[in-house]
Amino acid sequence: MQFWIIQGLNSLSLGGLLFLLSSGFSLIFGLMRLANLTHGAFFMLGTYFGAISLRNYSGLNIWVAALGAGIAVAAIGGLFERLILTRLKTNPLGQVLVTLGMSFIISDACLMFWGGDSIPVPTPQSLQAPTRVFGFVFPTYRLVLVGCAIAAAIALYFLLERTRLGAMIRAGVDDRQMARAVGIPVSRLFTIVFCLGAGIAGAGGVLGGPILSAYPGLDGDMLPLALIVVILGGIGSLLGAFVGSFIIGFIYTFGSALFPELAYIILFLPMIFVIAFRPQGLFGRVGA
């Protein structure tokens, strides 16, 4: 019983983490048809920003650090989009090269500035004591992280469904040509969405920090996870990213606990089936 409850909660917390990672990726892909392979590096950059700022300024709390890192990564992402990506709109292979190239630059810069050690992001003082759930002990921060993911999901939902900006984004996702024809400033919209996606990744990197820590290679560990979630959930679908995150959270957690010998492939086998039999993902409107 304890096993199922604790691992269930673990799955939820990993799912929350994955949503913070992948929602930005999904948003960017949905609107811009751009597989942003820099996304893992943006996430890692956020984690490093959080780890370093929390180490150097002891008065800072993690929420402020997450906001700051989110803004900083959004700014970097915005520059990247304006200066480089915008020239490659019709060149998908060029996009692959440039986004991977950018991720090489970012991860090597992290190594240069902050060395090869893993640097912890401290769990906030007030959340360090474990919580008792049904008589079992569970880390409080992980529960809060699930809350963060849900809050982010709701905020994104309102942004997309209830605001003018959201309406424009949805129009762009559905039909880019038509959106342009009715006077939506698609180019500016691209920049905004790219900043937003990168910013969520950056802030998510800080919030995931107490679980992951900042270390060289974090980008490479996270990027495939973002891709898997988005492919499973359906590209460009917020609901898909949300549900996909938690499904992957469950598969990963229970898979590695119940079938340790399959730990390396447990995430990829289901993905092969999904793509082979439902290429648009669970909630995708368009084919991948």
């Binding site: 892909f29 597989a35 492939i265 990829f268 793509i275 082979a276 290429p279 084919g287």
Partner: peptide, 20 residues
């Protein structure tokens, strides 16, 4: 069975399975 990003991901997944 897939094209575009789906094809990219499925080839990635297959190679990851072999790697694992």
């Amino acid at each position: 069975r897939a094209t575009g990003l789906g094809f990219l991901m499925i080839t990635l997944a297959l190679s990851q399975v072999l790697w694992g």
